[in-house]
Simulated assay, not measured.
Amino acid sequence: MTVGDIIDALSVFDRDTPARLAINPFFPMAHRLGGVEESVDEHGRPMVYIAESPEAEQFGPLPPAVAVALAWQGPVDAPPRRRRGVTRPNDGH
């Protein structure tokens, strides 16, 4: 993914919408963004890094719909509910 890809993807959203960083597909969590820095890779090519907040603020589990959209997990349906029996007084029997 390039900077242009990110700009294109984000351009459809309201500029005032908060952005979060989704990390760890095996335990998906949402984190606050902290900054953007430019550097070079091991071959001297320019790179851009999007960093987590210096406070390392974690907002908790990623919403399941986001994890599904990222293909980090499959859609999960609630387990089927079985009919519960009726509880009646024993009347001493």
Rank of each mutant, 00 (worst) to 15 (best):
M1V: 12
M1E: 10
M1A: 14
V3K: 12
G4M: 00
G4F: 01
D5E: 15
I6N: 13
I6C: 15
I6T: 12
I7W: 12
I7E: 03
D8T: 10
D8F: 05
A9V: 01
S11M: 04
V12M: 05
F13C: 10
F13M: 09
F13Y: 15
D14E: 06
R15M: 09
T17Y: 09
T17S: 09
T17C: 11
P18W: 04
P18G: 09
P18K: 04
R20W: 04
R20F: 10
P25C: 09
F27T: 08
P28R: 00
P28I: 00
M29D: 00
A30E: 11
H31Y: 07
R32A: 04
R32Y: 08
L33Y: 01
L33Q: 05
L33S: 04
G35L: 07
G35E: 10
V36C: 11
V36R: 03
V36H: 08
E38L: 10
S39N: 14
S39F: 14
E42P: 07
H43K: 07
H43E: 06
H43C: 02
H43N: 13
G44L: 00
V48G: 03
Y49N: 10
Y49C: 06
I50R: 00
I50Y: 04
A51Y: 14
E52Q: 10
S53R: 10
E55G: 15
A56E: 03
E57D: 11
E57F: 08
Q58Y: 13
Q58I: 15
F59P: 00
F59S: 03
F59Y: 14
G60M: 15
P61Q: 13
L62Q: 00
A65P: 09
A67Q: 06
A67R: 07
A67C: 05
A69W: 02
L70N: 07
L70F: 15
A71M: 14
A71D: 12
A71W: 15
W72N: 13
W72H: 09
Q73N: 08
Q73D: 05
P75K: 13
V76E: 05
V76M: 15
D77G: 13
A78E: 13
A78L: 12
A78G: 14
P79C: 09
P79Y: 11
P80I: 05
P80D: 05
P80Y: 08
P80S: 13
R81E: 11
R81S: 05
R82A: 01
R83S: 02
G85Q: 12
G85N: 07
V86N: 06
V86G: 06
V86C: 06
V86P: 01
T87R: 15
T87V: 15
R88D: 03
P89L: 11
N90P: 03
N90C: 03
